[in-house]
Design a protein around this nucleic acid. Structure first.
Lengths: 193, 193, 193, 193
DNA sequence: CATGAATGAGCCTTCATTCAT
DNA sequence: GATGAATGAAGGCTCATTCAT
């Protein structure tokens, strides 16, 4: 049951941090949201920072694994790209709090982005680069585009759409439809042929 | 001179907030960086939040004006798009602190993104949408792409590249060259023709 | 076995308190040192204070008894005084943790010194007073010295030497030899005759 | 006036620490006793520990200086010894809080006794040793007594009397008279001649 | 009896903000 | 206007104590 309590705190922290922002969140609020006492938090985490780090370290893992699994089910690089975008947007919709954390808080600190959670985040980004390289080898994608640029362009596009959606109260944008447009733009280009 | 002191605090805040992050920055540190006493800060700004808001409100204005001016010098929508990307990346390189603030801190808080500084930021984004609409009217850009999607895709791409560059210590990426690749991808697409 | 566990906690507390100081010591550390669970401590003691009180109450008893027995073996008051000093210093060397507690922690709190452990400590001090009174009756010690002053002078002297020895890392002072000098000073005086 | 506030906090801390003990004292209580806000304490001291260290470092200085001055006024080693004892007991009576701190809290921690305040305390003790050495050179004190032992015996005696007096509520003991008895014992010895 | 996870009151410390000079 | 010492509310973290197992 110890595992359950740790997980509860982690999940609660995702909600509270997403709602209030990491710095404005109080450890007591996280504990209350998790249904435990303040001190219990410190049985499972070193300090407040450690909670955030743990979220990125641990919650990112299943997201990455799921993504890789779904990607693997697709043959062509193009379908894999579409799957990545679709899957990412589904995740954003199903776990809006987690998505908001990834989007908003991950950028907050150089520390987080370049030390702790850098690895997991880079792993996620590199899924895109790998797909792109595969596509280049198959002759589907242009050779003159650097995979490392492409991955950032694509992730930046998807992330920006996600950010906007996550932060908007109304959520009026249809993310599924939007995903197809993103894929269309970065693969076919915006220019009239 | 009063105006000069206010400006000094604002510039100092950009540096300090970029270096330490908004929440971890102390008002005293901003004042010291500006060469004024702590209390002086409160003669020009309501509170700490107001400093950040003012940065976005006021420092964004010349950036937007410069961008609009440069865009206006270009005739075609395609050249305007290229100019926007190029100009944005130049700004990131010339004012890395300001860029980092825009990138990192702007996302930190729902409040900022959707109330105060939302206006200026939206105005910036809408420059892209306007160019795209012009291009659609001229028959250069595809009609089936929503300008509001395109603006986010393009800004997201440029922003992600900027973020990565700003947060990397080595700054090995050549932003000028990268800008061309970004423009190429979103206009021509990554697919082999 | 119950008695054994209580004793184990008490002995562990002596070590931990001596090493860290009473206030800085954690009950958990005492329990761990004793090889029992934290909660077990509270089966044998009311609270943390009670552990310290019990140390003085219970651990002092054999010390006092031993001291009285050894004293009783000596006939003359002078030999009894020498025995007290010698025996005290032996105790300090054999039970340095206990000695350190008596020395350092006993003084820490008005409460301890004047309520709980006052009795045992006074009983210890009064051994000296009794010897001195015997010596006065036998005409060996001067009549113009109050026993209550003498007991404090002598104990203070021995205690100061002990403190210094206990707190010094090197323990270079030879306590046996020193004991003779102490006895010599307080009985014969420091003045050249 | 800044100096005045620092001094006020220091004096207040002496009172509060003496009354409650260092560990049980709250920084807020020290601040309130000094008539300042809690935060003000941290403008003058690093932390709670620093307050205690500063007390020993700074408050000991005038005590030592006063002692040395009074000692210097006496010619003979014997008179100097009597003066030391008398003066120490006067200090205990005039500054009972400071005396209690020196007595009780100084011993609390190895750290304090052997690092920070060790120097000042040793300097105080060495005044006694110096007097004794002078007396030995003049042929007044016995050659077979080590000055380092004598200083501890004498200080221990005086300190024990002080401790007892300081911690007793009634303060019935006449310290002036007691001082003479102490001096008499350690110089002439307790034995009937 | 024994355990040790859980509790939550308590306290040190920080820092945005104020205000007397 | 300008200063920076002073304020005191707030919050992260500890740890003595409890209690379900």
């Amino acid at each position: 049951m110890a595992k359950g309590k740790r997980e509860a705190i982690l999940k609660a922290a995702v909600r509270v941090f997403a709602r209030e922002g990491f710095f404005k969140s109080r450890v007591e609020a996280v504990a209350k949201e998790a249904g435990v006492a303040t001190g219990t938090t410190y049985l499972y985490f070193e300090n407040k920072d450690d909670i955030l780090i743990s979220i990125f370290d641990e919650e990112m893992t299943p997201i990455i694994d799921d993504m890789k699994r779904e990607i693997a089910e697709q043959k062509s690089a193009v379908d894999k790209i579409r799957t990545f975008i679709r899957r990412h947007l589904v995740m954003v919709q199903e776990q809006p709090d987690m998505a908001q954390l990834l989007i908003v808080e991950l950028r907050q600190s150089n520390k987080f982005l370049h030390t702790y959670s850098g690895t997991k985040f880079k792993e996620y980004l590199n899924i895109i680069a790998s797909i792109f390289e595969q596509g280049q080898q198959e002759g589907v994608f242009r050779q003159d585009i650097k995979p490392t640029i492409f991955k950032q362009v694509m992730f930046g596009a998807v992330d920006q759409i996600s950010t906007n959606w996550a932060l908007s109260r109304t959520k009026k944008l249809d993310l599924n439809e939007t995903g197809e447009q993103i894929a269309d733009i970065i693969m076919n280009g915006a220019l009239q042929k």
